[in-house]
Amino acid sequence: MARITASVYTSHVPAIGAALDAGKDKEPYWQPVFAGYDYSKQWMKDNKPDVVFLVYNDHATAFSLDMIPTFAIGTAAQYQPADEGYGARPVPTVIGHPELASHIAQSVIQQDFDLTIVNKMDVDHGLTVPLSLMCGNPPKDAFHWPCPVIPFAVNVVQYPVPSGQRCFNLGQAIRRAVESYDEDLNVHIWGTGGMSHQLQGPRAGLINKDFDNAFLDKLIADPAAAAAIPHIDYVREAGSEGIELVMWLIARGAMADVAGRADGVNLKHRFFHVPASNTAVGHLILENK
C-alpha cells in the first residue's frame, strides 16, 4: 500500500530560481536563503520519496482567465518548465506519475472534491522553485529530478480562492486516496507558496514576521486552528499574496496525526528568513510519528 510519510512546506519565490540559475546562490543576499535548505537537500537524499505530490499555484502561466480551476490535478506523463517571459528555467522536465495521479483523482472526486483533471500543462516557478530548493539544480550528467512529481494546482489568483478549511479537508481526502493505492510507494506531499508578501499597490513589500512565525507554530502543533484562519486575516496580516499559505494546509491535512493516527508530527527542520525579493521565506519538514 502507498503511504504519505512526510510533508514539506516552502515558499516558491521566482527570484530564488532566477538566482540559483544565474549562479548567484553564494552571493551575500542569497547565501542565507539557500543555507536554510542545506539540511533539506541532505534529508531528501536520506529519505528519497518514490513520488512527490506537489501542491502549488500557477501564476497566469498554464491557466489564463479563460479557465480558472479551483483545484487541478496533473495526470500527464510529463510537464515542461514554462517560459514565464524570461525564457524557460534551465531545469529538467518534470516526470509525472499518471497511474497514482489518476487513482488519487478518482478517489478524491468520489470524496466530493470537484477536481479538474489536466493532461497537458507547463509548470511555472511555483512548482520548479521548490524542487530546486529541495534537490538543488541537477547537474548536466544526471539531468533529472530525483523522482516523479504529481502537480496539484490551486487557484489563489482570482477570488474566491478555496478556504483554508476546504484545503485542510482536501489534504485528508488525499491521504485516504494514497492509502487505497495498491503499490507500495513512499509519497511526500509538499505545500508551497507564501509566506507573507504583497506584490501590488502602495502596500507592496509588506512582511509580517510575527504572523508568519505564529502560522508555522500553529501549522506544526495545531493545524486545525491554522485551517480555521479566514481569508481576510491572510490578506490583512500577511499581504494580498500571503493567501498562498492556504496551500500549506493541503499538505498538513494529509499527515497521520490529523487522522488521529499519531500524537503530532516530528519536526525535522524549520527555517525562516526575510527577504527573498518581495517575500518572507518559510520552510518546514514534518515527518509522521
Partner: peptide, 8 residues
C-alpha cells in the same frame, strides 16, 4: 491500480 471499477 486499485481503481474501483464496478462497471466491468
Amino acid at each position: 491500480m486499485s481503481l474501483d471499477k464496478p462497471y466491468l
